[in-house]
Design a protein around this nucleic acid. Sequence first.
DNA 1: CCAAAAGTGTTACACCTACACCCATGT
DNA 2: ACATGGGTGTAGGTGTAACACTTTTGG
Lengths: 257, 257
Amino acid sequence: MPVEPVPTHDARLAVSTVIFALRRDEASGLPSLWIPLVRRTRDPYLDDWALPGGWLPDDEELSDAAARTLGETTGLAPKYLEQLYTFGALGRSPGGRVVSVVYWALVQSDEAERATTDENVRWCAADALGRLAFDHNRIVEYALWRLRTKMEYARIAHAFLGDTFTLAQLREVHEAVLQRRLDPANFRRTMEASGTLVDTGERLSGTPHRPPKLYRYDASIDLADAGPLARTRALGNGAHPDRGETDPILPHPRMRA
Amino acid sequence: MPVEPVPTHDARLAVSTVIFALRRDEASGLPSLWIPLVRRTRDPYLDDWALPGGWLPDDEELSDAAARTLGETTGLAPKYLEQLYTFGALGRSPGGRVVSVVYWALVQSDEAERATTDENVRWCAADALGRLAFDHNRIVEYALWRLRTKMEYARIAHAFLGDTFTLAQLREVHEAVLQRRLDPANFRRTMEASGTLVDTGERLSGTPHRPPKLYRYDASIDLADAGPLARTRALGNGAHPDRGETDPILPHPRMRA
DNA sequence: CCAAAAGTGTTACACCTACACCCATGT
DNA sequence: ACATGGGTGTAGGTGTAACACTTTTGG
């Protein structure tokens, strides 16, 4: 057995969060993904932009730390929060090793429109950030990939919306994240088949055409596929890690005997 | 901006690994999943069984630490290694906070047959471990779920086998992990369609029936779906994190416009 | 009435499943 | 020769993609 001495000078532990919201482009009218960044106020990468985060307090849960820094920078509460990955490469932070447990979060987009924006917080289009501090470009790239991948098999799109929404709004979210148009008819059937949509009986009026039904999201269905860690924290809607790699990954059966 | 003081008393950082091998049951002849455990030699949970791991050295990469403890307990090198999740709940370790970055690994099964087994290392059937130290039962449960989920969409089964293998051997791996029989004919076509199998031209002789072809795994195909972190470390075959929670996740297109 | 989006129906096609059947080798 | 697993062929079911079509509102 190897000896197991208590370390005298551990790597430092940080928590960061990639926060996604949907923002409507003024010109095209189409929504796209935006994330908030904070300006560095001290030496490594001073004045550069970085992901919200900070050192992990001794007495705070990892996900709580992620949600707290999210609130401190945006003034919002996450509607979806999930651990992304832990980055701990030796060279990633000049001047002392830092291991960062990174979360990703979705926030309600209409709330995000009127979110905090001061000198040191800036919202950027997720696919056109500048050069970020540390390895944060890589982290955002991975978070984007996870969001897009997971959107194809999990029901998380509603986290960008309010309590009730129309199918067109839900489809618009999918289209913005996946960056391609979806067939309204097939999208409707796919969502209805998932069993997670509840017809509220209400309709949205004031549109210049036939008023669409308003739906509500039903969380009780999804949990089966979310894996053994899903039951952990409730968090309003769904807060589960991955399928992995989710991968996922749970669509079809397979060739059986 | 919140203050950002350097912490005086961080949580301690550990790395653990869930190591999977396939072991053939003497009675039934069918292979099933086994994992090595180490006996605790100090106070929290003294003499209980736990996952291999240890404190993260200041100058070692996370994945290297996982691979090293794997080697120290089994004498083997991983054929597949991927970060699983980071566990950092406040109460998970009595007497001081510990944040564990957990990896999962696959090792070649015939090598594992003759692996280290002393007083303090024991191999157990993955679905019939006793009560483990800390939250390690939960961790193994999650790792098992990830392995089974990922086996359905990613090509990782070959990591349990040698350099060359027959389709029947590969199918046996899938059957053992997924715990159900697969149709040999359909399994063959699915694997051939994946494009990751290379016919070596050789055949396995000595069987009491028609000699099956020997195949080799071709890594160059898979990397497309593995996500932005895949290019990181080469590690013989594939070492990529997730699709996440992958998950996944990448089988089908979707309703297009 | 017209435009436009909501919502329904239908067909073509891809893929998975199940199972029948032939092939090649050791005993 | 024959038993056994290797390997190929093929019909039926399931689900998605594409698109035509009807419905319902505001202007």
